[in-house]
Computed example of a mutant assay.
Amino acid sequence: MKRARITGVGGCLPVQVVTNDELAVRVDTSDEWIRARTGILQRHIVSGDENAVSMATDAARKALDHAGVSPANVDAVVVATSTPDQVFPSVGARVQAGLGMTSGFGFDVSAACSGFIYALSTANALICAGQARRVLVIGVEVFSRLMDWNDRTTCVLFGDGAGAVLLEEGGSDGEGVLSTHLHSDGRLGDLLYVDGAAGCAGTTQHLKMQGREIFRHAVAKLSAAVDEALSVNGLTAEDVQWLVPHQANIRIIDGMAKKLALSSERVVVTVDRHANTSAASIPLALNEAVHDGRIQKGDLVLMEALGGGLTWGSALVRM
């Protein structure tokens, strides 16, 4: 069976940084309140000409440069996003054009904060099935578009950004994407959702969340997804070098690290500086840890995420 491996990573964050203190000027909150409940200190918010396509394209270019691969040699672009610039064309198709690709295909995947895991799984399947040799997998979000900036329970949590990886066919046995595991339960969709969409009259088009319920489900479902990934591969938590989790809340991240008995030095955390960038959070964190030298070739990396849908999943990757 063909195997897919990550050969390049890249990221893009908006220029504008909004601190907790700056948010406190706009809504009834404080730096202390936000830090204590989430671990967030600041977030990046788009401004000027920045949007989903521009950030995704920039992150993709950096991933290609890191891998030393030309856009002409990429077969597909799979983008995870809940906040595209247009209903269609897809962000994937726009990125394809932005990179100057004249062949292949691009499309979007919508699975909220679990989107990158879903997109990685889809790209891996394309390579394993022989439909593509090189696939750009991108997570990009402009969640600032969905915020009710008067609601302190949600607007303090999210930020904008994009992260990308290049997935290529090849690699030795035991290297690359070992497995991915996807789940959803539509019965829980009202715990985290966006009220309406373009053209839906009488809706706010703002994000709505039952935070306590999401926290409760996150701990149980992510634990199960992690156990599933390890069990399928005949591995234990002791085999994991790095946990690269979805960056939603420091308490959830700490809980998963404790479950795996991983020290804080083995957990990649960006939620303090990026806030929750939804589908972009895992590739942004992976990009940071690869480029600063923490994650090395041969390291076993565990990724996990939960988002609206509810959707959740995990992936095990040998770098």
Score class of each variant (00 low, 15 high):
residue 146 L to C: 12
residue 194 V to K: 01
residue 25 V to K: 15
residue 293 G to H: 11
residue 132 A to H: 04
residue 10 G to F: 08
residue 30 S to H: 09
residue 230 L to V: 07
residue 161 G to K: 00
residue 239 D to M: 08
residue 191 L to M: 13
residue 60 A to P: 02
residue 290 V to D: 01
residue 238 E to G: 15
residue 268 V to L: 04
residue 29 T to Q: 05
residue 229 A to I: 06
residue 3 R to C: 10
residue 290 V to P: 03
residue 311 T to I: 01
residue 72 A to Y: 08
residue 67 A to V: 05
residue 48 G to T: 07
residue 70 S to M: 10
residue 134 R to L: 03
residue 148 D to V: 06
residue 61 R to G: 02
residue 196 G to K: 13
residue 70 S to T: 13
residue 189 G to D: 10
residue 44 H to R: 15
residue 66 H to P: 03
residue 60 A to T: 07
residue 210 Q to H: 14
residue 281 S to T: 13
residue 280 A to D: 06
residue 225 A to C: 13
residue 216 R to W: 02
residue 80 A to V: 10
residue 172 S to T: 14
residue 292 D to Y: 06
residue 271 V to Q: 05
residue 313 G to E: 04
residue 187 R to H: 12
residue 118 Y to I: 04
residue 100 G to R: 08
residue 231 S to D: 12
residue 178 L to E: 11
residue 49 D to M: 11
residue 32 E to C: 10
residue 296 Q to R: 15
residue 252 I to T: 06
residue 52 A to I: 09
residue 1 M to C: 12
residue 176 G to T: 08
residue 148 D to I: 07
residue 113 C to K: 01
residue 192 L to N: 02
residue 113 C to V: 05
residue 233 N to R: 12
residue 142 V to S: 02
residue 187 R to Q: 14
residue 110 S to E: 11
residue 16 Q to V: 13
residue 247 Q to K: 11
residue 181 H to E: 13
residue 237 A to L: 00
residue 260 L to D: 02
residue 196 G to P: 03
residue 83 T to P: 00
residue 151 D to I: 12
residue 138 I to S: 01
residue 275 A to L: 06
residue 60 A to F: 00
residue 160 D to Q: 01
residue 185 D to Q: 11
residue 262 L to S: 01
residue 57 T to P: 04
residue 158 F to H: 02
residue 293 G to W: 09
residue 98 G to I: 04
residue 99 L to F: 02
residue 271 V to W: 07
residue 9 V to H: 00
residue 105 F to V: 14
residue 202 G to T: 05
residue 175 E to R: 13
residue 197 A to W: 12
residue 271 V to D: 04
residue 130 G to M: 06
residue 145 R to C: 05
residue 155 C to M: 08
residue 297 K to I: 09
residue 197 A to N: 11
residue 146 L to T: 10
residue 250 I to W: 04
residue 303 M to Q: 12
residue 256 M to I: 15
residue 218 A to T: 05
residue 204 T to I: 08
residue 61 R to L: 11
